[in-house]
Nucleic acid binder design. Sequence first.
DNA 1: TTAGGTATCCCCCAAAGGGTGTATTTTTAA
DNA 2: TTAAAAATACACCCTTTGGGGGATACCTAA
Lengths: 206, 206
Amino acid sequence: MSPIEVFIVDDHYMVIEGIRTMLQNEKDIELIGHASNANSCLMFIKNRQPDVILMDISMPEKTGVELCKEVRQMYPGIFVIGLSTFNQFSFIEAMMENGASGYLLKNADKKEIITAIHQVAKGHTYVSEIAAATLKNNAHQLSPLLTRREHEILRLIAEGLTNPAIASKLFLSLSTVDTHRKSLMRKLNIKNTALLIRYAIEHNMI
Amino acid sequence: MSPIEVFIVDDHYMVIEGIRTMLQNEKDIELIGHASNANSCLMFIKNRQPDVILMDISMPEKTGVELCKEVRQMYPGIFVIGLSTFNQFSFIEAMMENGASGYLLKNADKKEIITAIHQVAKGHTYVSEIAAATLKNNAHQLSPLLTRREHEILRLIAEGLTNPAIASKLFLSLSTVDTHRKSLMRKLNIKNTALLIRYAIEHNMI
DNA sequence: TTAGGTATCCCCCAAAGGGTGTATTTTTAA
DNA sequence: TTAAAAATACACCCTTTGGGGGATACCTAA
């Protein structure tokens, strides 16, 4: 049986180096390349498709979430494992929603990485224990929360736009934006803009 | 000449592994150990003091900034290099103010890490180019900006307090708090609460 | 002694936020 | 597939907060 071909995308050279070392002695896993940004990754896989991509979620320019989506659309045969420093629900959720098969935290050890790669290459999913716990904890309280529109408006608020500005940007009436803002605050149980922004940043929806 | 003894503190195993690999073939650098949190690090150096510690800035429990401070107080002979994902002024500043001799971003390559270790071991300082640029850009505009009172009020705003609430908490009149809020916004050239909170968080003054 | 930080007040209007109601579309579940 | 539920869009009410401007005065550290 041919080895599982793995590709790494991470803007931190140290992490690439670390993973490379950890995979070095695995006979059934072969690291076929690495990239430090989304575009280099796309260029590479145009010529050669790995079985599994280990992909950092937070990268300059194009994020891992976007890259994951594109890769999965173009090459459904490539499985993606998200890599992240943050054990944050929104990230995990975003990756899984965009076609990722797994999620690892960067403090994962050798054993966990290898297990994840094997599982994912077989078409299974693998989410690291801690991440899975987060997913479970937040599943009920966080997922049903904000609608697409509310999310969108929250992002624009966090960008510093006022309700009138948002209204004109989205071609909505001020009342509508007003209502959305109020209802998202009610849902999140937040009573002013300051805490709203903190929420948005802490849940990574800037 | 005996090799430079290096210790790594980072909560991400991949990063430790990556640095270890990069330092492997350096004859004049010896990696004597690693830890994944501040306390393990302190335990280790009680018995054996490295020449240089590579220290992640954001760690659970005790941050790198605090650890750096303690290490430098107890063992002035140990030089510290801060390691971080974020090229953020406040972090770099905080590390340097607490006795760090250097600052590296996690996308540093082998050459840069080795240079940094050598420089720092000699008692010099080493700040990665990008970080140095950030430091330079922010130096003039950030330091003289806010007064103690304005800082205090900004923190309270970020905690979600309204002006009236801040006034009663600080035993000030609403007008005073109002004035402070306005003048700090004028100084920072920020026009609404949303951006103000982002500023506060991004500059680590939550 | 002079500038800057602090504290106080005024006016004014725009924006935020709390409430309630309604109509249309889209989603989801029975 | 159809009925219920949720999302979206809009409106009007009203009060509080935010934010732009200008003015005055005290205190303290260069």
